[in-house]
Amino acid sequence: MSLATFDLSPLRRADRWHPAELAFWLLPVAAYLVFPDNLVLLTQIAITALFCLSLDLILGYAGIVSLGHAAFFGFGAYAAGLLAANGIGDPLAGLAVAALASAALGFVTSFLVLRGSDLTRLMVTLGIAMMLYEVANKLTDLTGGVDGLQGIEMTPLLGRFSFDLYGKTAYWYAVAVLFLLFWAARRLVHSPFGLSLKGIRLNVARMPAIGAPVNARLSAIYTIGAAYAGIAGALLAQTTQFVALDVLSFNRSAELMLILVLGGSGSLYGAVIGTIVFMSAHHVLSDMNPEYWQFWLGALLVLVVLFARDGVMGSVRRLSHAAGGRRKGER
């Protein structure tokens, strides 16, 4: 093959939107029309999907393991909640403040987290989240402690759409934020920065030898992931007008990890699909005894680790690969 005939299109086309993706983003509209009585649940799904997306950025792309990602979710939730409870009820201002607060926390803690091995990272992230939980638990004057933060009053979105009783505004608000941030994350992972994150995950030892400042890159994505998680937390605080202490809990971090593994990490869509599957299953199954739910959740986690490590997206990829191979008759 010569330089003149070389086909660059596989690289150039990598960031194009696939028709299946466009169809995927019609799902929120379809869900709105089909389940108009379940908007609260659908809003929760959008928020959790955003939260999971933030974990995918740091774990799926950069390979930073975390058992305490709820720290940023909860920090953002409290930041937005406190802002609104103290008279500044503009939703977008709340998102901005939460994003900045969580990003700052992420930036500072990134230096602690990035020092160690995977095992140290797991324990440091866990420790940081537990510390925040204890702080929120004890600062009852500020956070309401175990009773939760109340008195959150939101002003209308963009000055026009007030948060209604049916949750319509909340739903479209959460979906719009999710889509915008998904779009931004999608740009990010297809950029040179995103490529270098994949490089770090695949072979961290090689990266300095091609001149990449590994820690600076990891610090940056950790901060961005924290900001995303903070915005997700803020959305929860704003749409439910309440912040419960469990936004910071270990269970939330662990569950998030499960959702990402279930959906498949490192594809962005895996995070969203995993959330949809998980939350729907939760909704359907928790009508049964809630203890059963936790049991099957645990069993599922064990099975996924043992047998289906690449999750739903991995299966989709394998299937489409097989189909594509048959079509082209090669590979």
Binding site: L8, L11, R12, R13, A14, D15, R187, L188, H190, S191, P192, F193, G194, L195, S196, I210, G211, A212, A216, R217, A220
Partner: peptide
């Protein structure tokens, strides 16, 4: 090459 050219941290425009 991105790293040598100092564009390795660009996060908006795609690699291509």
């Amino acid at each position: 090459v991105n790293e040598r050219l100092g564009v390795g941290a660009r996060f908006w425009k795609p690699v291509g």
